[in-house]
């Protein structure tokens, strides 16, 4: 804002003399004031009301920055709160999945219990496993080792007839 004293156009057109009241007596410690001189003042149309100071740019900038900070803080707060909610939701989902996994694990254990496997095997008609045959090592001092492929000596075998019940596993 340009001060009125510098507005030369107004100076030429509207010049008033006004009486300036006598200034009160100054303190003796202060130096004597200069003698009063008549001032040339100008009436400016649309001038702001007396007492209201025009906003300063720094103030406006500060206000904008402050408002932005407040908004930013609020946004961060909202985002943090939102992520907290998300985290809680995810944790809840993890817990639910873990519980589901535990239940499924128990189901697997129940289904793979020997008694159930035995029962199912019997139901579907599985038969006992065949007899086990063991190959005996060649006796010490034998000329040729007992093998199943040489044919020179039939390997000694111990045959164990199976009396297993169906579905009890085994080899």
């Amino acid at each position: 804002m340009t001060p009125p004293e510098n507005n030369s156009a107004l100076q030429e057109t509207q010049v008033f003399e006004i009486a300036v009241p006598q200034r009160r007596t100054q303190s003796p410690r202060r130096p004597a004031p200069a003698p009063d001189r008549p001032r040339h003042l100008h009436a400016v149309p649309g001038r702001p009301a007396p007492g209201r100071r025009p906003p300063r740019p720094l103030l406006v900038v500060g206000a904008v920055v402050a408002a932005s900070l407040v908004l930013a803080l609020a946004a961060i707060n909202v985002l943090v709160g939102q992520s907290g909610v998300n985290e809680a939701d995810i944790q809840k989902a993890i817990d639910a999945k873990q519980q589901q996994m535990e239940m499924l694990r128990v189901d697997v254990l129940r289904l793979s219990a020997p008694a159930r496997v035995h029962q199912r095997a019997t139901q579907i008609g599985l038969i006992p496993a065949g007899a086990l045959t063991y190959l005996a090592p060649a006796p010490a001092g034998a000329q040729k080792p007992a093998t199943t492929t040489s044919g020179a000596r039939k390997p000694a075998t111990h045959t164990r007839p199976s009396t297993r019940t169906p579905g009890r596993g085994g080899r």
């Binding site: 086990l132 063991y134 005996a136 090592p137 111990h158 164990r160 199976s162 009396t163 297993r164 009890r168 596993g169 085994g170 080899r171």
Partner: peptide
């Protein structure tokens, strides 16, 4: 008889 097979215990050589 089951345990011998299950535990892979070889026969009496």
């Amino acid at each position: 008889q089951f345990a011998l097979g299950f535990m892979r215990i070889p026969p009496s050589y």
